[in-house]
């Protein structure tokens, strides 16, 4: 594992901690898209079907369990916790995420490395992760005002994707048989979605102002 991959995993972890912190500390999930969070649950469950069949490392196994567990905990809080669910901005979170699930699954049936149960679900999870942030980004755009922790959450998620791209570039030059076009192309698409957000994030950071997205 190289430093970029590790930095990517850590920023991913930090993003989840920031989100949990926001929900637990403020007992509020305002500005957070439940649809994006539900998509992440599906992403992790579909991708980590290999938890019991392929062992890579203790690190990988622990991280997989953490990602599955934390994403389930977040959705549980937003749906079941009495105080938290009252703060959910349902009317701003109207993205039709079922189409993303359906589209990703059809794409996985067409484009995959091997026509096996696990490989189809792996490709599905990669495609779905690429678009899973869209309901959240649309929600941020709609509300315009982004609170601090929500902004940090999306920032760390984007940083995670950027580090993964550096990781692939590094692996491409250091490993003799590195080719994984499904993950890399989807990763590029996914990172591109963050470009707009990053632009406004850095402007607000530079001006030391509150993050605001144009309507």
């Amino acid at each position: 594992m190289n430093i970029f991959r590790f930095a990517g995993d850590m920023t991913h972890l930090i993003s989840i901690v920031v989100l949990l912190l926001k929900i637990y500390a403020t007992k509020s999930c305002s500005g957070i898209s439940l649809k994006t969070q539900e998509l992440y649950v599906i992403v992790f469950l579909a991708r980590y079907l290999d938890l019991f069949t392929d062992f890579i490392s203790v690190y990988n196994t622990v991280m997989k369990l953490v990602f599955i567990g934390s994403s389930l905990a977040i959705v549980w809080c937003m749906r079941m916790h009495r105080a938290v669910k009252r703060t959910y901005d349902k009317e701003l979170d109207t993205f039709r995420h079922y189409f993303l699930v359906l589209g990703s699954f059809v794409l996985a049936l067409l484009l995959h490395e091997k026509f096996t149960f696990q490989e189809i679900f792996w490709a599905f999870s990669i495609y779905l992760e690429a678009v899973a942030i869209l309901p959240q980004l649309v929600m941020l755009q709609r509300s315009g005002n982004v609170d601090n922790l929500t902004g940090q959450y999306v920032f760390f998620l984007g940083a995670y994707r950027a580090f993964y791209i550096l990781n692939w570039i590094y692996r491409f030059f250091t490993e003799p048989h590195f080719s994984r076009w499904i993950a890399c192309l989807s990763g590029l698409v996914q990172t591109a979605f963050y470009a707009d957000f990053f632009y406004y994030y850095f402007i607000s950071w530079k001006n030391n102002a509150k993050l605001q997205l144009p309507a």
Partner: peptide, 10 residues
Amino acid sequence: QSEAQAHDEL
């Protein structure tokens, strides 16, 4: 590269 290692990322 073995199959298991093909998905060594998270």
